[in-house]
């Protein structure tokens, strides 16, 4: 399965967790393809399954209680699910790297920055100590850490949040991976630092040609960073589309609600903000119909009874909704009226 230029293809991936409360279908049938050099955004609220998706790709789901129960993950022609764990380890950190949400807790507080940086290249590139050290210094320089040599010998707690995230990125990119998975890389950071980190990822991506999966709850973050976007809700893909199309003409009521509920600085103050009512559902006890039905502003009887179809709107644009086409048309009309 070597599609031209496809680096990662995920088909109908399902990851379930066994809990006291029943089976939680954290990810329930997600499919996408990522081309070389492309950036994919995965957007969703907490519990939507966006992080589990990516831990599943890396086979990092704690088992038990979690288990990948179905689907294919094909990375550069390799069926990741069929590999032995040792073979997966050869991919982790070398060909697929990850950075995580909280740089405060994701770096080992007990080990020096140098130790944590060096072990990656010693493991995957067979560097000796000197080579690994020099490579580490170079990587810190690349991610814009001033005075990298003195930082190498320091500990993570001596660094600010932004600097720690830079160290994480340096670590992730040490082996020049083909795919970088960034799981909420800026959520724990200040806006000014977020802007620095996003700029850095964008810049490194352009220089190194890395494909990126960017997971976030912030639609603003993916707007300027990605080529296409997946919107997840309750473990399901609700909408997936090229970035521009998703923002201009969303075909799913949930996406539309999310977009409208972000306060827009251009709008007048004092106007009531659009709000999606209610709460996300309990993923262990999903109703038979659409999981979003109880919160949807255009819900009809069928939504509560039948599970919605995954409707194709355009090339690469799908929406999980009984009325996907209607919602899409509505968005188009609004767009035209606004223009």
């Amino acid at each position: 399965m070597t599609n031209n230029g496809t680096i990662l293809s995920v088909k109908d991936l399902k990851t379930y967790f066994q809990t006291e409360d029943g089976v939680v279908k954290a990810v329930d049938g997600i499919s996408f393809e990522l081309k070389k050099g492309e950036t994919l955004g995965i957007v969703g609220e907490s519990g939507s399954g966006k992080s589990v998706t990516n831990l599943s790709i890396m086979r990092l789901i704690p088992e038990p209680p979690g288990k990948i129960v179905g689907g294919d993950v094909v990375f550069d022609g390799i069926d990741v699910r069929s590999l032995s764990i040792d073979e997966v380890r050869k991919i982790r950190g070398k060909r697929i790297a990850m950075i995580f949400q909280d740089p405060m807790t994701s770096l080992n507080p007990f080990l020096k920055v140098s130790t944590q940086l060096m072990e990656v290249t010693q493991l995957h590139l067979g560097h000796d100590k000197t080579q690994a050290y020099e490579h580490g210094v170079k990587m810190l320089e690349t991610v814009g850490i001033p005075d990298p040599r003195s930082r190498m010998d320091g500990y993570p707690h001596e660094l600010s949040g932004g600097m720690r995230q830079r160290v994480m990125i340096a670590m992730a990119l040490s082996c020049d991976p083909e795919l970088l998975i960034a799981d909420e890389p800026t959520t724990a950071l200040d806006v000014t630092i977020q802007a620095q980190i996003l700029e850095l990822i964008k810049d490194l991506k352009a220089r190194m040609g890395t494909s990126v999966i960017l997971i976030t709850h912030d639609l603003g973050v993916v707007a300027g960073m990605t080529e296409k976007i997946i919107v997840m809700y309750a473990g399901k893909v609700f909408e997936q589309a090229p970035t521009k199309e998703l923002f201009s003409t969303p075909a799913n009521p949930y996406t539309r609600g999310l977009l409208k509920s972000v306060p827009d600085p251009a709008h007048e103050q004092g106007k009531e903000l659009y709000q999606i009512p209610g709460l996300p559902p309990d993923v262990a006890h999903l109703p038979p119909g659409c999981p979003f039905a109880e919160r949807c502003d255009r819900v009809e009887d069928i939504c509560r009874k039948e599970y919605p179809p995954f409707v194709q709107i355009n090339e690469g644009h799908h929406s999980l909704c009984h009325f996907a086409k209607e919602v899409y048309e509505e968005s188009r009309r609004e767009k035209a009226a606004a223009a």
Binding site: M58, L60, R89, K90, I91, R92, G93, K94, A97, M98, F100, D102, T105, S106, L107, N108, P109, E119, V120, L123, H124, M168, M171
Partner: peptide, 10 residues
């Protein structure tokens, strides 16, 4: 989290 990071490094 840092153990997850260590595993993600391979």
């Amino acid at each position: 989290d840092y153990i997850r990071t260590a595993r993600a490094k391979g």
